[in-house]
């Protein structure tokens, strides 16, 4: 870490001793969320989120493919992410970094576990099913890519329309039928800085954190979790964070539904 970052990290830690955050937020408060859909007309669904200064664009493309051998009556889901070099000075062009792979896999698991889209519903006929490609494009990085990406992915799915199917392929100029959404998942990411735990860490807080955990839920049950970084949480801490996560569901669901016009 560069010298200037070390100064900022010590400052974040010093403030948190008094439960004060650098930007004045409460410990369990999200930054301002701006979410908009239908950003990319060529995609079947798309959404862009501003979570504070973190900006992620999510796009859904649907494509006719052969179902996987072990699930011949289901469609498929493919989530990928790009930490674009234009999003931060430290993001280098090149093959996906471990963070980028972790990010797409965590979002993938959240969508699958919550059964947000019904994969059997994507089956068309023997040998043909829709694959839903979700691309997460990180355009500006200032911490907490997990929640930003999950929310953008949910809104992109919720606003997606399926192309007409004809002669074994998709007719992309005719997209009328909305993609069926079973259940929205909401993601909450917490960072632990020394002994303090906070929601929606910004970049400086992430740099200061020893541990991070992402909890996705559907308002009733936990659907996916991922702990990151070198530190740890106690069982009690995780249980408490699940409570916080569940309590945030309605608020996040509303943001997603409003953006998707539901």
């Amino acid at each position: 870490m560069e010298g200037f970052d070390i100064v900022k990290v010590s400052y974040v830690k010093e403030l948190l001793l008094k439960n004060v955050r650098e930007d004045g937020r409460k410990l369990m408060e999200f930054r301002q969320i701006k979410l908009a859909t239908n950003i990319i007309d060529h995609a079947e669904g798309s959404a862009q989120i501003d979570l504070g200064a973190t900006r992620v664009l999510a796009a859904v493309k649907l494509q006719v493919e052969e179902p996987m051998e072990d699930t011949p009556t289901q469609g498929n889901l493919m989530v990928s992410s790009e930490l674009l070099p234009l999003a931060h000075a430290d993001f280098e062009p090149g093959p996906p970094s471990p963070l980028s792979i972790e990010l797409s896999r965590v979002v993938d698991r959240g969508i699958r576990a919550a059964e947000t889209i019904d994969l059997s519903g994507l089956f068309i006929e023997e040998g043909k099913a829709w694959t839903a490609f979700i691309d997460l494009y990180v355009l500006n990085y200032n911490g907490n890519l997990f929640d930003a990406s999950m929310m953008a992915a949910m809104a992109a799915l919720a606003s997606a329309k399926i192309p007409k199917y004809e002669n074994g392929e998709g007719v992309y100029t005719e997209r009328n039928e909305p993609l069926k959404i079973n259940r929205l998942a909401a993601s909450t990411t917490f960072a632990k800085v020394d002994k303090t735990i906070l929601l929606d860490p910004n970049m400086h807080e992430e740099n200061a954190a020893s541990a991070r955990v992402t909890i996705a839920n559907d308002g009733t049950v936990v659907r996916a979790m991922q702990k990151g970084l070198g530190g740890s949480f106690s069982p009690k801490e995780i249980e408490n964070l699940v409570d916080v996560s569940l309590s945030k569901y309605d608020e996040l669901k509303k943001v997603i539904e409003q953006a998707a016009g539901k």
Binding site: I40, H42, A43, A59, V60, P95, F133, D135, G170, Y172
Partner: peptide, 17 residues
């Protein structure tokens, strides 16, 4: 670096990279 998003064209998803 010029690059095209895999969702950028009308039609099928393209490979990234």
């Amino acid at each position: 670096k010029y690059s095209m998003a895999p969702f950028s064209s009308m039609g099928e998803h393209s490979r990234s990279g």
